[in-house]
Simulated assay, not measured.
Amino acid sequence: MQRAEMPILAVLGPQTSLPRSTPSELAPALVERARRGDADAMRALVLHHQKPVHALLYRLLVPSGRGALVEDCTQETFLRVYRALPDFQPQGAAKLSTWILTIATRLALNELRRPSLVVAVDELAALPVSSPLHADSLVERRALGQAIRDALGQLPPDQRAVLVLRELHGLEYAEIAGILDLELGTLKSRLARARAAMRTALEHHHG
């Protein structure tokens, strides 16, 4: 995969320290304790995964003007994790981190499929923007961040999810296909369309 195509997406935040990959997997013994209802183990699990879950939901919901739902959806994600964790199979095909991101992604997509809301332009303009690019000025970086958020907001939710999971969370194609219940060919086609739309939007931004 040509990852260099989309480094500009890093300006989406919100936490600039967030790695582009999912977190390391927790020790099996700790996961097993959490599955059995150990409160301390469950707390450790939430602390370990809350940053990528929050960032994923932020990146999926905010471009559609639904930033107010991020915190609620983060809490709902971990509530669902807590309820379903006893049935999670650590030796199964899905890693725990991918399983948790699956819950968060499907929750966000359900929200995005509800009747559309008007994007709050003032809210988007106020979002923090931090770019690794060497822009000439803070104004340019903010304009670039706004252009990216606007472009992401125009993507269909399923395309946005593919792009965010691949480019910002570093998931493999097979993992994303499982999360979104897609055939591999469909996933790659959707990702290509999303990348093309983003490139076009950014070309327009740069004039």
Rank of each mutant, 00 (worst) to 15 (best):
T74M: 07
L57A: 03
Y58K: 03
G37K: 02
L56A: 09
P52F: 00
L61Q: 03
V70M: 08
D40N: 12
R43M: 09
R59W: 09
L61G: 07
P52V: 10
A34F: 00
D72Y: 04
R43A: 15
G67N: 10
L61Y: 01
L61I: 05
V62N: 04
L57D: 00
T74C: 11
R66L: 14
G65Y: 02
Q50T: 12
R35T: 00
H48N: 14
E71R: 12
L61D: 03
R43W: 05
V46H: 07
G65E: 08
H48M: 11
L69K: 11
L60C: 06
K51I: 13
P63G: 08
E32K: 02
R59T: 11
V46P: 08
E32C: 04
L45M: 07
L61N: 04
L45S: 01
V70N: 07
G65I: 03
A41C: 09
T74F: 00
R66M: 14
R59M: 09
F78H: 08
L60G: 00
A41E: 01
K51V: 15
L56N: 05
A68P: 03
D40C: 10
R80S: 11
A39Y: 00
T77I: 09
T77G: 07
G67F: 05
E71Q: 12
H49K: 07
T77A: 02
A44S: 14
R59Q: 15
E71I: 06
G37R: 03
Q75F: 03
R59A: 12
L69Y: 05
V31L: 13
A44W: 03
Q75L: 10
A44Q: 13
L57H: 09
L79P: 02
G67C: 06
L79R: 11
R59Y: 12
D40Q: 15
M42I: 05
D38W: 00
Q75D: 06
L79W: 07
A41F: 12
Q50E: 15
E32Q: 13
A68H: 07
M42V: 06
G67Y: 04
A39S: 14
R43K: 13
D72C: 02
H48L: 09
P52I: 06
L60Y: 06
A34G: 01
F78A: 10
H54P: 00
R66H: 05
G65S: 13
A34M: 00
A55M: 04
A55Y: 01
R33A: 02
R66F: 08
R43N: 10
